[in-house]
């Protein structure tokens, strides 16, 4: 009798174990795909921003005759985005574009006529909105990657992750130079 019961318990545990392994494996697959999806969802917004930029530059050109350098930097950063290949390169290109856009909006402060232009205000608001959404989705992407990275390093998931070659993914990181303290000087103002 005891032998049968032990056998029964053993079978039960085996069944639970097999189902558990399946659940963990499926969970990891789903997480991996979620990362791809989160990345693609950022791409959707980046594409929208990419498409809005020529309109913005066109509006700015009329007013900012003396800021060709800034505008060219935006155009260059935009073309780098389109030519970037691979995750890391693309992240760098997108970060560079974000930075040039920031400089553009800073320079705009010197052109009150441009700031008052209806089209510029609409485009600026649209791009700012997109920037906010991109930042949110980057955060979501990093959360997804983080959950995945933790899962594949945690016991017992690590066993299944190693068995099926699940490897870690990189977070969306900013340029290290942006971590430096900002120096504020009012002397030239």
């Amino acid at each position: 009798m005891t032998g049968w019961i032990v056998l029964g318990v053993f079978v039960f545990i085996l069944v639970v174990l097999v189902l558990y392994v399946i659940a963990v494996y499926n969970g990891l697959v789903s997480l991996k795909n979620n990362i791809e999806k989160a990345w693609s969802n950022i791409d959707v917004l980046l594409k929208q921003r990419f498409d809005e930029l020529p309109k913005l530059i066109k509006v700015c050109e009329g007013y900012m005759q003396h800021e060709q350098k800034t505008l060219e930097a935006v155009i260059k950063a935009r073309s780098q985005v389109s030519s970037a290949r691979g995750g890391k390169q693309e992240i760098q290109a997108q970060n560079a574009l974000t930075e040039t856009l920031k400089s553009l909006f800073m320079v705009v402060e010197r052109y009150p006529d441009l700031k008052a232009d209806k089209s510029f205000r609409q485009l600026g608001a649209r791009i700012s909105e997109l920037e906010d959404q991109i930042a949110d989705r980057r955060e979501l992407y990093n959360d997804t990657v983080n959950i995945y990275n933790i899962r594949i390093e945690q016991f017992p998931d690590v066993i299944i992750a190693r068995m099926f070659n699940f490897t870690g993914r990189t977070l969306w990181q900013i340029d290290p130079s942006h971590r430096q303290d900002v120096k504020v000087s009012f002397s030239h103002m």
Binding site: A23, V24, G27, S30, L31, N34, K37, A38, N41, V44, L45, D132, Q133, I134, A135, D136, R137, E139, L140, D143, T144, I147, R151
Partner: peptide, 18 residues
């Protein structure tokens, strides 16, 4: 399974929800 799903899903912000 539901517990795992909740743990594996990151929280979205409503503004940028996909």
């Amino acid at each position: 399974l539901l517990k795992r799903r909740i743990e594996n899903t990151p929280t979205s912000k409503i503004r940028s929800m996909a």
